[in-house]
Amino acid sequence: MEELNQQVMAGDEPIIICREMNKWFGDFHVLRNISLEVMPTEVLVIIGPSGSGKSTLIRCINRLEEHQDGQIVVNGIELSHDVQNIAEIRRETGMVFQQFNLFPHLTVMDNITLAPMKVRHWARDKAEQRAMELLERVEIPEQAFKYPGQLSGGQQQRVAIARALAMEPKIMLFDEPTSALDPEMIKEVLDVMKELARTGMTMLVVTHEMGFAREVADRVIFMDMGRIVEEGPPENFFSPDIVHHPRTQEFLDQIL
């Protein structure tokens, strides 16, 4: 199933296109002339210091933030004020948040089946069956009927991934998915993400996990002050022989 999707989607057309995109928060220019293309099945890791606009960038792609200038095209649909277009793009885009954002009043199962039933209009049986498959994939099927508050942080984040996947999105956005986790829980979440990357999911990942970037990314982007400063394959990015932009070098020196 996943392999089939991969073949169908792995065309030459980029699945996400940003052209000359600009965004301001009041007077603060968060994103400056962002131009970016992401191909289907590509895993793109976005790194950079805090406040560099990397989260805002991926939040613009499913319209959690509104860009003011330029163009964003997702899966062939341009993002504008057209609510139908926004709804269509959100259906095809899953998102995982730093703070998980699970619905605390719903069980794990209901968290996962809610959107497929309400948005995709699946029968409950189908939605629940799919949810169990996903829970097995993220290795917590036994937690299906607990509430989010009863799970550990790592388990909650894996449920959040399953919830996003239940909509069968073409693109997954990860906004610092491991930043709120204890060190020993980071690995279990990264493992799920690695497995997801292997199955050919298009992924945009904002993270500070350089190990993950090195191992899984097809391309790494470094952002600073709302600009894309440098991009390249991870082999180059993390190689000591490459001469980086001074700002990139400064950042890499601090974290590596």
Binding site: N62, L64, A87, R90, F97, F103, V119, A164, M167, L173
Partner: peptide, 14 residues
């Protein structure tokens, strides 16, 4: 929490 709204929107809920 605002995150609840963002999660709902990201899932495409009306």
């Amino acid at each position: 929490p605002k995150g609840q709204l963002e999660a709902s929107r990201a899932l495409g809920l009306s």
